[in-house]
Computed example of a mutant assay.
Amino acid sequence: MIDALQTATVGMARATDRLDTAAQTIASAGAPVSGTALQPAAQVDLSSAAVELLGSKSAFALNAAVARTADRMTGQLLDINA
């Protein structure tokens, strides 16, 4: 059960990193590059960043479900052994 918790924790951390990277990509779309000019839309792929946001949200939720299940199973195992 500990392995499942560790795997879920690592998965949630990676999903958080992916979310952060995608959010920074989206936020930089309106940031001035030099002076007052905005970054051209062709240089920022907002659609893939939005897909990455959704994917990281799903990955985090799935890993959290694994962690909850492993926690519940560990609790039941301890109850049986007690």
Rank of each mutant, 00 (worst) to 15 (best):
K57H: 12
L46S: 01
Q43I: 08
Q39I: 10
A67L: 01
L77G: 07
K57S: 11
M73Y: 11
V33I: 15
Q39T: 15
R18F: 12
D45M: 00
G35E: 09
A13M: 11
T74P: 01
I2Y: 10
A22K: 01
D45W: 03
P32V: 14
L53S: 06
I80L: 15
Q39M: 12
A8F: 02
A31Q: 14
G35H: 09
D79I: 06
A22P: 06
P40E: 02
T7H: 01
L46M: 03
Q43N: 13
Q43C: 08
A13N: 10
P32S: 12
D17E: 14
A59F: 04
R72T: 14
Q76G: 07
A41S: 13
L54K: 08
L54Q: 15
G11W: 00
L5F: 05
A70D: 03
A70F: 00
L78R: 14
Q39R: 15
V10H: 12
L5K: 07
A67D: 04
G35P: 08
A27Y: 13
L54P: 08
K57G: 12
S47K: 06
N81W: 15
T69N: 02
L77V: 06
S58C: 07
S48P: 06
L5Y: 03
P40M: 04
M73N: 15
T9W: 05
V66H: 00
D3S: 08
K57V: 08
N63I: 02
S48Q: 10
P40V: 00
Q24F: 15
T69W: 00
A37L: 13
V51F: 10
N63Q: 01
M1I: 09
T25W: 08
D45H: 02
A61D: 00
S47F: 11
A82P: 01
A50E: 12
R18W: 10
M12G: 03
I2C: 08
G75M: 07
Q43E: 12
A27H: 12
A67V: 02
G75I: 03
M12K: 04
P32I: 13
V44Q: 04
R14I: 13
L38E: 11
A29D: 07
D17N: 11
D79C: 05
V51S: 15
A64Q: 02
Q76P: 01
A8R: 01
S47D: 14
D79Y: 07
A49C: 04
A49N: 02
T7L: 08
A13W: 05
R72P: 05
M12I: 10
T7M: 05
G55I: 05
D17C: 07
A23S: 14
